[in-house]
Amino acid sequence: MKATRTWRAALSAFGWRHGVMANISLLGLPAVWFACLYLAAIGAMLVTAFWQVDDLSGNLIPGFSLSNFSVLVSDPIYRIIAVRTVFIAAAVTLADAVLAWPFAYAMVRLAGPKLRAVLMALVLVPLWSSYLARVYAWRLILAHDGVLNWALSAIGIPGVHIGYSNWAMWIVFSYLWLPFMILPIAAALERIPPNLMEASADLGERGLATFRRVILPLALPGMAAGAIFTFSLTLGDFVTPMLVGGTGSDFIGNVVYANVGVTNNIPFAAAYATLPLGVMAVFLLLARRLGAFDAL
């Protein structure tokens, strides 16, 4: 017993005197875990992007070649697909921001405790069901003879043909990721002290001006945090384009998926996958400026 205690005391004293060593021993294991699982995977991807594939046997040829990137640059289709992916991710983020605000505001500021719990549950419950089941449900809703057209014809409006199109993808993505926008905005709204709004009212500001000059700036970090989720989740998806997309609906993820799972050209997939990595880096820098990381 005594030996153990002195051993512990010695260790503790050593840590006290050499703070750096104490920090290393505390953070070392998580850092190794992070390096191995996360950085190594990204590193492997970046290295593979410069490899080649033998056409006939399908074997990887290690080395350094820029030919994957030159195909990506020279063939306009990959630019079109990249622009489409980023554009739809941005459109989904915008739609979710617009839809999430009134809901989050009502949930935090207007609803009583009981209603608030119910609204919170309504936001979270869809996340408990399978992603695929929800996408398939939308496929049935938007189909030619689906619920949407049935409802439209019931009220005398001609049917719309948006099943299997980029519009369908926009709607489905906006639906799928809405909870990820509502939750951070609600959290940010909750943190605004009520007396700021009272002060604004005392100083003669009307509701809309209070919103614009007090609530919106203070909740902006929350919205930026939500945008990180909606944007990155859309940017990396390939299942929804596959299921509800039509012609000209491929995402970067679909090209990556096809090159890995279908044509077995992993280096080309890796080269294309570096693009969303760059896009996300830029997006995160912007989000940090808006204070998203303080709100997370």
Binding site: D55, V71, D75, P76, I77, I80, I81, T247, G248, S249, D250, V255, A258, T263, N265
Partner: peptide, 15 residues
């Protein structure tokens, strides 16, 4: 044209 060329053409057809 070999099959990898077919695959590239197909990607640019379907967009």
């Amino acid at each position: 044209l070999d099959y990898s060329a077919w695959q590239r053409e197909w990607q640019s057809i379907k967009g």
